[in-house]
Design a protein around this nucleic acid. Structure first.
Length: 741
RNA sequence: AGCGAGGUGGGGUAGUUUGGAUAUCCCGUCGGGCUCAUAACCCGGAGAUCGAUGGUUCAAAUCCAUCCCUCGCUACCA
């Protein structure tokens, strides 16, 4: 087991904003715990990741802020890199302190020219192997003085060919939900630059033949059934059952890796971000080898040995990224293997064998961490940012809370009261307190080895046995990527320590240390030092900062991260002592204070106008909030009078067949035909309550389709923002159709 | 409505893939103990018809069917 090559692949954070706690819990903390654990076991760990820096959202941010895309990614690469280091993630040093043969880590970036070089190399070899096909697509093109550009569908707006709604996107109408070809959109314009002329142009693109890999991927997935978690199995299965189709690997955009092809038609095209960024796992390993080791060293972590030894690849990512890593990326890896053997698209695709690049061993994907019951969201300012958190708290408190609360099997929640509770009662009350008891009691004894002099391990065999069991439990849990469970086991060791002290009552014997009873009691206290040492080693993957503080407080030298995992239960290690007065490992948290700080933070951050961001493995899109005008704005009387309000009587109310919240209301509006209005009142009214009511409605609102049914107007209702919504009704009788003023 | 995930003592959670005996652990709560320790620690108690109903089985939290509810995404909203 020891000495195994383990490649830890971490989802690449999108360099368009800072990381928040959801990202940390989902994809950045777990791999670091795993890497630290594997290193302690004596394995050779290479950890790779970096900033994902290409793609349209970054150019939009750059354009919005009037800076270059490179400026945007430089900024967030630096911020995120530093935040991860501050969190204790082992992206530095790049070389394992035990030696380069033990690996290391590299947090790179996709704008690195060397990354470009490897991606281009791979692109060409896949193309030569015939694994791409060429297709012509139609795309909007914005004509500008400086040459113009193709526009992604989401940056084109126009009138829906189906319902006529203005503001429909290039490929889909948000109003009626219909999808269409780009050329069908009426009066299209560029969202970023509405004045510009735009037109449809043909554009050629390459598509990766995922379809060729279908059966091999199915075989691969069936072989992984036992190790994959249920969410990984389910999402992969869904993808494979839908059937794989070829997928575009090039795009019309300017910020990315240009196509390595001659010819005017390839000008202005880049390799599609999804296809290029995933290859970072590969390029990053090669770059690491070139920069810190021998140039072929990467092969030890990537290639299957001649004897069939497979390096263990672990990918850490969020649930939305699962099919990318269990279907698409394996297909690319197998494509590269295929091409390297000189095979082409007519040859059958095979699973990797000796000499080939290896596929993933496991993908311990996480669900999401929610914030106080809701999704983390930039636009709603509903987030706790990693950099600001680390300015205020010990990183180990975050690591503890996120690890004990990790969204391994389902979404979990971050909230401040729970955070404070868990830190104070578990981390400090149980673990910190036990350690502090041992050290301060030792301090009261005299001699160069105040605890060591009373050591008598023959009296502590039961404790040893229990700790050995706990050690085995932690080891098994971590090797199965069950972080929560593993940390629970670690905490039981401090509980064991507290129990031992409680029954031994060493504080009663600090002065009469010569009696037999005292010797027995103090031998237990002495063993407390060994339990604390056990805790320093076993908490190290989770809580590296406090583990090191404890290591020093115990009188041990060097780095606890360098000590072997099995040493935690080596009872023959000579005891040491640090005569310096012990200080508590952690400071208690005060909820009131934190909540007050949070308030202050929210108000200062609300002026801060960061662009939207995404992350691979995190949530991608953020909902746009309704923009309410700031301050008081006055309305002209004329403008108000443009609104035609009339009285109507509700004739019937039916459920909208295709919507959760909508009723279809038939209204007698004084005309012969009446009118139909879709109203989102299902949560607030029974249909029967509404029938017969005389209500006020807006008669000249532009009709629009809601979930397939045309709604001709809107009924007025009052909303107190606390979940109470009531319709405006008429006091007394009046004929339907009467004007309201 | 479509897709995905989930409902286990007051809160949180393990166990479900591969059925098995008193259903795990943490917090809270109640009672007791200790006073070395950061109002921390230790012992004990109460508290769950494992979302509902039906089925398979000697045996179901676990397998099957139907239904209900919750959450996320996609929608959508007074």
């Amino acid at each position: 087991m020891s000495g195994e090559h383990v490649l830890i692949c971490v989802a690449w954070p999108y360099a368009n904003g800072p990381l928040h706690l959801g990202h940390v819990a989902g994809c950045y903390l777990p791999p670091d715990i795993q890497a630290r654990f594997e290193r302690a076991l004596g394995n050779r760990v290479l950890m790779v990741s970096g900033s994902d820096e290409h793609g349209t959202p970054i150019t939009v941010t750059a354009e919005t802020n009037g800076v270059s895309p490179q400026d945007v990614v430089d900024k967030y690469h630096a911020i995120n890199n530093q935040a991860l280091l501050n969190l204790g993630c082992t992206w530095e040093p790049n070389q394992d302190p035990r030696g380069i043969e033990f690996g290391g880590s590299l947090f790179n970036r996709t704008s690195d020219p060397e990354h470009h070089k490897y991606v281009i190399e791979n692109f060409q070899s896949l193309m030569e192997a015939g694994l791409f096909e060429k297709k012509t697509m139609q795309q909007y093109y914005e004509i500008r003085d400086d040459g113009g550009r193709f526009l992604p569908d989401r940056y084109v707006e126009g009138e829906c060919p189906h319902c006529g709604e203005d503001g429909a996107r290039g490929d889909q109408c948000d109003e009626c939900g219909i999808t269409y070809e780009a050329h069908e959109l009426k009066n299209p314009s560029s969202k970023m630059n509405p004045g510009a002329k735009i037109e449809i142009r043909d554009t050629e693109h390459f598509f990766y033949r995922l379809d060729l890999f279908q059966s091999t991927l199915e075989q691969h997935a069936s072989e992984r059934q036992k190790v994959w978690k249920s969410n990984v199995r389910a999402m992969t299965k869904q993808w494979l059952e839908m059937g794989l189709r070829s997928r575009a690997v090039t795009r019309d955009l300017q910020w990315g890796i240009p196509l390595p092809l001659e010819g005017e038609q390839w000008h202005g095209k880049c390799i599609y971000v999804w296809f290029e960024a995933v290859q970072g796992y590969y390029s990053c390993a090669r770059l690491w080898a070139e920069r810190y080791g021998g140039s072929s060293d990467w092969e030890k972590w990537w290639k299957i040995g001649a004897d069939g030894t497979v390096p263990r690849h672990l990918y850490f990512l969020g649930k939305d990224n699962i099919p990318f890593h269990t279907v698409i990326w394996p297909a690319i890896i197998m494509g590269l293997n295929h091409a390297n053997k000189g095979l082409d698209s007519t040859d059958p695709i095979r699973l990797p064998g000796p000499g080939d690049l290896a596929l993933e061993a496991n993908v311990p994907a996480m669900e999401y961490l929610m914030l106080a019951g809701g999704q983390f969201s930039k636009s709603r300012k509903h987030a706790v940012w990693l950099p600001s958190f680390l300015e205020r708290f010990d990183p180990d408190t975050l690591r503890y809370y996120l690890a004990i609360n990790m969204p391994e099997n389902h979404d979990t929640d971050f909230n401040w009261p729970d955070f404070v509770e868990k830190i104070n009662s578990e981390l400090i009350g149980a673990y910190g307190n036990f350690v502090h008891r041992v050290l301060t009691l030792g301090q009261r004894l005299t001699g160069p080895q105040p605890l060591g002099q009373f050591e008598d391990n023959s009296l502590c065999e039961l404790e040893m046995e229990k700790l050995e069991q706990i050690h085995a439990d932690i080891t098994l849990s971590l090797s199965r990527h069950r972080f929560k469970e593993a940390l629970r086991f670690v905490m039981t060791a401090s509980q064991l320590g507290n129990q031992m002290l409680q029954s031994a009552t060493p504080w009663k014997h600090l002065k009469d240390s010569q009696s037999n009873e005292a010797k027995e009691s103090l031998a237990k206290l002495s063993f407390g030092w060994r339990i604390a040492r056990f805790l320093a080693i076993t908490t190290q993957p989770f809580l590296p900062f406090s583990a090191q503080r404890l290591w020093v407080a115990l009188g041990e030298k060097g780095e606890v991260s360098q000590s072997e995992w099995a040493q935690a239960i080596d009872w023959n290690i000579p005891m040491k002592w640090n005569p310096i007065e012990p200080t508590p490992l952690f400071t208690r948290l005060d909820l009131e204070e934190i909540l007050a700080d949070e308030q202050a933070l929210v108000s200062t951050e609300s002026t801060n106008n960061d662009p939207t961001h995404g992350v691979k493995g995190g949530k991608k899109s953020t909902k746009e909030e309704k923009k309410m005008p700031e301050g008081i704005t006055y309305l002209n009387f004329e403008t108000f009078m443009e609104v035609e309000l009339r009285v109507g009587k509700i004739i019937s109310v039916e459920d909208h067949a295709n919507a959760d919240k909508l009723y279809v209301v038939k209204l007698d509006d004084g005309t012969a035909d009446g009118r139909t209005i879709c109203a989102g009142l299902k949560e607030y009214y029974q249909a029967s309550e509404m029938v017969g009511k005389s209500v006020v409605f807006v008669a000249n609102l532009k009709p629009r389709k809601l979930r397939g049914i045309m709604s001709e107007g809107m009924m007025l209702a009052a909303d107190d923002d606390n979940g109470i919504v009531r319709l405006l009704t008429i006091d007394g009788d009046i004929s339907t159709g009467s004007l309201v003023r």
